[in-house]
């Protein structure tokens, strides 16, 4: 009951806010009317369309990269014997860092002039590179920081899936003369698919809510090229104090990501299922 109230209240509040004319004030929020104006403002805004495209692109690329790298790491770690525990511990370090802190670390890495990454780029022929001062490289820099931090999460979930695969299956495959590649596609992958599905859903939900990395690293820039939906919503609400449109961004983002996840789950089930059959 309490949990339902705690979860439900902010959700309902946001939805109510998004369909009202909201006025802030010393005495609290003042709602009036039932209107879709807020959504109209949002959907017609070029800023919103850009943020949606950027956030979607960012989510797709980072989650795919994390999925591939995570499975590879899990396959390697699974074969380690006694050192597996240590490896797991090491793996968890980036994941356990609070994003704001890891983002601050990356800020030093990317800093023009004295950053390690900038220095490395000068070695391969770039003249005084400004990684965060160019849209393309700034987006890539955010993605690298994200993949660095969250691949371990995918790896650990994938590892949990791998460990649960009975050894007999691999032995049988070997007896049948199946190649390593074939074994991976026909046995390993199908059997860890539900683990991977969980990992991907978690990651999509998180990546779509991208906020702290660009907030610390780029402030949404250069220009507004790394302004994610969450940042746009935050700015609209708390910098511009336009609560109605801000809530509309939040509500529409939640709907989009939920629908996206549902669609993905169906496709994923169908895909991997057909492979099995």
């Amino acid at each position: 009951m309490v949990i339902a109230a705690v979860t439900g209240f902010p959700l309902i509040f946001a939805v109510v806010m998004s369909v009202s004319n909201v006025k802030v004030g010393g005495g609290g929020f003042d709602f009036s009317g039932l209107t879709l104006d807020n959504f109209e403002i949002v959907f017609k805004s070029e800023k919103w369309r850009y943020a949606l495209a950027f956030t979607t692109f960012y989510t797709v690329v980072t989650v795919l990269a994390e999925l591939v790298l995570g499975v590879l790491i899990a396959l390697v770690v699974e074969r380690l014997g006694a050192s597996r525990g240590w490896m797991l511990g090491l793996l968890l370090i980036p994941w356990s860092l609070i994003t704001v802190i890891s983002a601050t670390l990356w800020r030093y890495v990317y800093a023009a002039g004295y950053g390690v990454a900038s220095w490395a780029l000068t070695l391969v022929g770039f003249d005084d590179p400004v990684i965060l001062g160019n849209s393309t490289s700034a987006i890539a820099a955010l993605m690298v920081a994200d993949v660095w931090k969250t691949t371990p999460f995918v790896a650990i979930i994938a590892l949990a899936g791998l460990v649960s695969i009975p050894k007999e299956l691999y032995e049988a495959a070997e007896v049948d003369g199946s190649s390593g590649w074939r074994t991976f596609w026909s046995i390993t992958l199908p059997l860890i698919r539900s683990a991977l599905l969980t990992a991907v859903l978690f990651r999509v939900l998180q990546a779509f809510g991208l906020f702290d990395l660009p907030f610390v690293l780029t402030g949404g820039g250069p220009g507004s090229s790394t302004t994610s939906l969450a940042m746009l919503g935050y700015n609209t609400m708390f910098t511009n104090l336009r609560f109605g449109p801000g809530a509309a961004i939040a509500v529409s983002t939640a709907l989009i990501v939920t629908l996206g996840c549902l669609a993905f789950t169906r496709v994923f089930r169908a895909q991997v299922g057909s492979r099995e059959g």
Partner: peptide
């Protein structure tokens, strides 16, 4: 925001 985002975009050379 209109001032600083567009100023910044011009400074990075993208527009």
């Amino acid at each position: 925001e209109a001032l600083y985002t567009n100023m910044n975009a011009a400074m990075t050379g993208s527009v």
